[in-house]
Design a protein around this nucleic acid. Structure first.
Lengths: 192, 192
DNA sequence: GCATCATCCGGATGGAGAATCCGGTTAGCA
DNA sequence: TGCTAACCGGATTCTCCATCCGGATGATGC
């Protein structure tokens, strides 16, 4: 970003992110002090690289966000606007339910997470584009705004968390909830 | 519960709950130390009455939960099963969006909140009854289970929080989201 | 290869907040 | 009015988070 990191610093950076990734996957909340211990590093080292747990979480979430953005850009080239939107939302919900690092990042106000602001902006604009294409095709109810997409996806992910269950259950539940919601959103073009 | 409280203890209990109610309404997170200060009481007094912030929150949320349960029982006597379910869910979401004390209580696992366990159980069974009535009437999609009601309502409330806005906006958003979801849930009886 | 410097490491230290504990006080009752 | 049990309240302890600086280490020029 600014300057190539010194070799040891880069190595420690990687270790920290790896440990954080593991902690997130096993559902443990990120505590920088704890991360330092598990990475075999001093607390100061971790705090220098990541000033807050949120910053670390952002870094952990970044690859997944990028994958989503990629998929979204690809979806924009699809021929069926409704299917494109549907597929994008499906991926979004699956990712949120599968990867515990995404939910906090997605739900946070845009400007509170400096490192992923741009990425989130990309995702938002892709979603907006997919939605307006679908709306132009008469495939979604008109009172659904672009600003509703993120909240609704976060809401489904939250609902799945409340429901609980094994990882496989969770994915299944997410599919059911999204399908139900989409049925409420979908409209069939009235001929025009 | 166990024995009538001594007069001063009862007075202090009321003060604590009133302060907590005010804090919840203005969106401040409950900290027992802070509550003590605002109520003009010692920290120990507050901790004796409520061992944890969650316990205090439960007490704050109780009247609202009772009102919901009342409405639910009343809804069970309605003639149109779908309308009854719809009305109950609407009240539930409105309450969650309006009263910040409900969301944490609603989303918590049943056994973690001793004081409201029974009340939540009542609500759950009312919801289950309303749902099965509606299902028997062929008014809801069959893959919606009773265990989905609470998560879905919590999810909508969460989505509204992510969306943000003024209190009036929030209620409006909640209505829109619930309406969309209900449209996905609703089925018109296929003749049988 | 070696000296020099910037950068990084890491834990000891400081600070904020939460929860406990116990001497003093007050309400209820005979 | 005197006695006892229950209650009050803040000083104290404990835990966890974040900073800071002396020591170490990798990068650069000769």
């Amino acid at each position: 970003m600014t300057m190539p990191l010194r070799k040891d610093a880069a190595r420690n950076w990687d270790r920290i992110v790896a440990v954080a990734r593991a902690l997130v996957d096993q559902g443990t909340p990120l505590q920088l002090n704890d991360v330092a211990g598990r990475a075999g590093l001093g607390v100061g080292t971790v705090y220098r690289h990541f000033a807050t747990p949120e910053a670390l979480l952002e870094t952990v979430a970044t690859p997944c966000l990028e994958a989503l953005a990629d998929h979204g850009r690809q979806a924009l080239t699809g021929t069926d606007p409704w299917r494109a939107l549907e597929g994008f939302l499906l991926r979004t919900v699956e990712a949120q339910v599968t990867d515990a690092s995404l939910a906090p990042v997605a739900a946070a106000a845009t400007d509170t997470l400096p490192h992923t602001t741009e990425l989130k902006e990309t995702l938002r604009s892709v979603g907006t584009a997919l939605l307006s294409r679908a709306r132009d095709a008469g495939a979604v109810r008109p009172d659904l705004a672009a600003a509703d997409l993120v909240p609704l996806m976060c809401g489904i992910a939250y609902a799945v968390n409340v429901h609980g269950g094994t990882p496989a259950d969770r994915i299944d539940t997410a599919h059911r909830y999204l399908a139900t919601l989409l049925e409420g959103l979908h409209t069939t073009p009235q001929h025009a």
